[in-house]
């Protein structure tokens, strides 16, 4: 860029942008701060920002009273399991569409995308019935499969766009050298595809972790992940701000950190390559 920016202008930009950024981030910051307060400090008027008696008590109480670890474990299994299963199914599919395209490849990709548009509530009862029939209601395996299915189109699309960026000449060269299909995938493609696969995994763990339709409707006590755990604070526990905050902070912290690493992939993953 040839334009020179004055220091004054840059200072104004910086101040303004930081103010807006902090305003948007404030609810999260406030939640984190409140989680370290006593219940009395949490509702104090005027509100206390930094000068209060910092305590870890709420975290202990939340874990003790509601067995937070069990919900966390369910979230990890469901988000991790559905992503892993999805990746295993998606890699071969995306690979074949990217490197052995046929006339129908585009139609298949578009059709896969269209399954993502199905509103969940439209098939709520059938899923409920299927889950009862299969004995999947309130089980982790059931949710792993449903979340894998709803995110599979995104996984395939993301992998497809990443695989497309791998130059075909490299594959041809490997083939000329007599590489078999298996060694071509294993030793040539996979190493180049690792960054793409990693960011696909990252984004899908985030999406599955935060999914709050199926996890609320198809679980009760055993398989409930953190989304459902927090929903149990609807009332009247939600009025205990410090405990609500501690529970919320624990539920969002891991994904917030992962999310910051995946901001670039977010655009690619959620726009299906429509914005680059």
């Amino acid at each position: 860029m040839a334009r020179s920016i004055t220091t004054k202008r840059k200072t104004i930009n910086t101040a303004f942008a930081w103010a807006v950024g902090l305003l948007i981030f404030f609810p999260i910051l406030w939640t984190i701060l409140t989680s370290f307060k006593t219940e009395a400090d949490a509702i104090a008027f005027p509100p206390k920002f930094l000068f209060f008696d910092w305590t870890l008590e709420n975290y202990a109480v939340v874990q003790e009273r509601s067995d937070y670890m069990r919900f966390l474990w369910n979230s990890i299994i469901i988000a991790g399991g559905s992503t892993l299963l999805g990746i295993i199914i998606a890699i071969p599919a995306a690979w074949s569409m990217a490197f052995v395209p046929s006339r129908r490849t585009k139609d298949i990709l578009m059709w896969m995308l269209s399954t993502k548009m199905l509103p969940a509530v439209g098939v709520l009862y059938p899923m409920y019935l299927i889950f009862i029939k299969l004995g999947w209601l309130d089980t982790r395996i059931g949710l792993v499969i449903v979340l894998m299915l709803i995110n599979l189109p995104i996984i395939i699309w993301m992998l497809y766009t990443y695989f497309k960026e791998i130059p075909g000449e490299i594959l041809e060269a490997a083939r000329m050298d007599g590489a078999s299909l298996k060694s071509e995938i294993l030793y040539v493609l996979t190493p180049m595809a690792v960054p793409g696969i990693a960011s696909t995994i990252l984004l899908n763990v985030i999406l599955a972790w935060n999914e709050a339709f199926w996890t609320l409707n198809l679980t009760a006590a055993n398989a409930a992940p953190l989304t459902a755990f927090i929903a149990s604070y609807s009332s009247p526990e939600g009025l205990f701000y410090a405990k609500l905050s501690a529970a919320s902070t624990m539920a969002i912290a891991p994904i917030l950190i992962m999310g910051w690493f995946s901001q670039k992939q977010l655009v690619r993953g959620l726009t299906f390559g429509a914005v680059k």
């Binding site: 948007i24 609810p27 939640t31 927090i230 604070y233 609500l244 910051w260």
Partner: peptide, 30 residues
């Protein structure tokens, strides 16, 4: 152009990663 662009970006993007039940309850109660 500004100082700390990366950090501001992180602050702005953060709400997207908050699960819907948390943002609903935090806003409603707090």
């Amino acid at each position: 152009p500004m100082w700390g662009q990366g950090i501001v970006r992180i602050l702005v993007i953060a709400p997207f990663f908050v699960m819907p039940t948390v943002s609903g309850l935090v806003w409603k109660n707090m």
